[in-house]
């Protein structure tokens, strides 16, 4: 019995030591995830986010094609909960780019365009720019990035 628990304990310890750590959100904000997970669950808002980013696409495509079925676009307020007020810098090529999102949960988030939400205003819809964390209205026919909420 003692032998078996030793066999289990030593490799587990080795794995613990080997994991990289660099977080902007508090470590309790997102439920435990591995580098290969395709979803991130926020332990407090209870929202599950797709780690994949789509687009740029127009609002209709974002709603029906890119976030299909039980997936959906986040509401503006939900997407604002992903904003990291403590912005960090990443290199994209030789450019230093500011990003306002947790880097460990959402590495290499493209910020070349703001992200669609489901909150609409007539012919426009609200977006969030993850270079700054600010909100903007955009015409639904314009193309923006997409991150879905998954069930």
């Amino acid at each position: 019995m003692k032998l078996r628990s030793l066999q289990l304990a030593v490799p587990l310890f080795g794995l613990l030591v080997a994991l990289p750590v660099s977080a902007d959100a508090p470590l309790t904000q997102y439920k435990a995830f591995t580098q290969r997970d395709t979803q991130i669950e926020d332990a407090f808002t209870k929202l599950k986010w797709d780690r994949n980013v789509f687009g740029p696409a127009n609002h209709a495509t974002a709603t029906t094609v890119l976030c299909p079925g039980n997936n959906r676009l986040p509401t503006l307020k939900e997407l604002l909960s992903l904003v990291d007020e403590d912005v960090h810098e990443e290199y994209e090529g030789t450019q230093r780019v500011l990003k306002a999102i947790d880097q460990r949960a959402f590495p290499n988030t493209p910020v070349d365009a703001p992200y669609w939400t489901s909150t609409e205003e007539g012919t426009s819809a609200w977006t969030v720019d993850f270079r700054t964390g600010e909100t903007q209205l955009a015409l639904k026919t314009d193309t923006r990035r997409v991150r879905c909420v998954v069930p």
Binding site: F44, K77, D84
Partner: peptide
Amino acid sequence: VTWAKWPI
């Protein structure tokens, strides 16, 4: 900085 500690 503050993160959401409740559902939105």
